[in-house]
Simulated assay, not measured.
Amino acid sequence: LGALASGARTAVLAVPFATPPAGAGPVLAGLDGTVRGVADAAVADVLLVPTAEGLYAVETPGPGVTVEALVPLDLTRTLAAVTLTGATGTLLADADAGATAVRRGLLAGAGLLASEQLGIAEWCLTETVRHTRERHQFNRPVGSFQALKHRMAQLWLEVVSARAAARNAADALATGSPDAPLAVAVAQAYCSGVAVHAAEECVQLHGGIGMTWEHPAHLYLKRAKADSIAYGTAGSHRQAVAELAELPAP
């Protein structure tokens, strides 16, 4: 624990990156099988593996542990397939306690992801406004054209709402509020789409340069699209909101 807290070692939760907090549960019956789409598994020193028997800590590299790098959409966040074949590990918690711990971890991850999505949207809006002020057509800044003004104004409204949702989720997690699951679900249900929309508009409103590899807009779009399924899709979080608010879909 000391090495993990100091950053000398890295632990990774061996669940698919798309797992929502409500979907926390064993990914394997025991320390045998394959888990795909595990974020940052390639650089982990320890894998935390939820199984039907409980939560195990498995050293990597180690006997019976294979980590195969995958090619993700977002190349800045690595994904891997983890295969365990008769691996050995340290039992940290029984099945019930392990599932609770994993659920809390995924909830915190989803809540913090909303702030990342907010950051993506803010960068995209700021960069787009800057570009449309500097880029001229017909001897006028393209940002002065009414159609583009409306699109950027709509993005600004979405970013303001996303900021409120992300900050509410972060506050609920930091204070241990009993409303944290609802706050996180609301933030993810909203911020996910805002990040994608802002990144798409950033690419489009930059015109030709926005479609090139040289401009970083494509990196933000890929991160936004990858984030949109991380810790559950917006749809799964809307379903969680409905259940938490006792308004399930018919």
Score class of each variant (00 low, 15 high):
residue 1 L to N: 10
residue 5 A to Q: 12
residue 12 V to W: 05
residue 13 L to W: 07
residue 14 A to E: 13
residue 21 P to L: 15
residue 23 G to F: 08
residue 25 G to Q: 01
residue 28 L to D: 05
residue 29 A to K: 11
residue 31 L to C: 00
residue 31 L to T: 10
residue 32 D to P: 00
residue 35 V to I: 06
residue 36 R to D: 03
residue 39 A to L: 15
residue 43 V to N: 15
residue 47 L to K: 00
residue 53 E to Y: 11
residue 56 Y to G: 02
residue 59 E to Q: 06
residue 61 P to D: 08
residue 65 V to P: 00
residue 65 V to E: 14
residue 67 V to S: 11
residue 70 L to E: 14
residue 79 L to P: 07
residue 84 L to Q: 04
residue 85 T to K: 05
residue 85 T to W: 02
residue 87 A to F: 02
residue 89 G to P: 04
residue 97 A to D: 09
residue 100 T to I: 04
residue 102 V to D: 01
residue 108 A to T: 13
residue 108 A to Q: 10
residue 112 L to C: 06
residue 112 L to G: 06
residue 114 A to F: 00
residue 114 A to S: 10
residue 118 L to I: 09
residue 120 I to D: 04
residue 124 C to E: 06
residue 125 L to R: 14
residue 128 T to I: 15
residue 130 R to Q: 04
residue 133 R to H: 08
residue 134 E to K: 00
residue 141 P to Q: 00
residue 147 A to E: 07
residue 147 A to K: 03
residue 148 L to M: 07
residue 149 K to G: 05
residue 150 H to Y: 14
residue 154 Q to P: 13
residue 159 V to A: 08
residue 160 V to Q: 15
residue 162 A to G: 04
residue 163 R to T: 07
residue 166 A to V: 01
residue 171 D to K: 08
residue 178 P to L: 15
residue 178 P to K: 05
residue 179 D to I: 12
residue 184 V to M: 12
residue 184 V to S: 12
residue 185 A to I: 14
residue 186 V to S: 13
residue 188 Q to E: 14
residue 189 A to I: 04
residue 191 C to T: 10
residue 192 S to G: 13
residue 193 G to W: 01
residue 193 G to D: 05
residue 193 G to R: 06
residue 194 V to P: 01
residue 198 A to S: 09
residue 199 A to E: 02
residue 200 E to P: 00
residue 201 E to T: 11
residue 201 E to V: 05
residue 202 C to I: 08
residue 204 Q to Y: 11
residue 206 H to T: 07
residue 207 G to S: 07
residue 211 M to A: 10
residue 222 K to I: 03
residue 224 A to K: 00
residue 225 K to A: 13
residue 229 I to N: 06
residue 229 I to K: 12
residue 232 G to Y: 03
residue 237 H to P: 13
residue 237 H to M: 12
residue 241 V to A: 08
residue 245 A to R: 10
residue 247 L to Q: 15
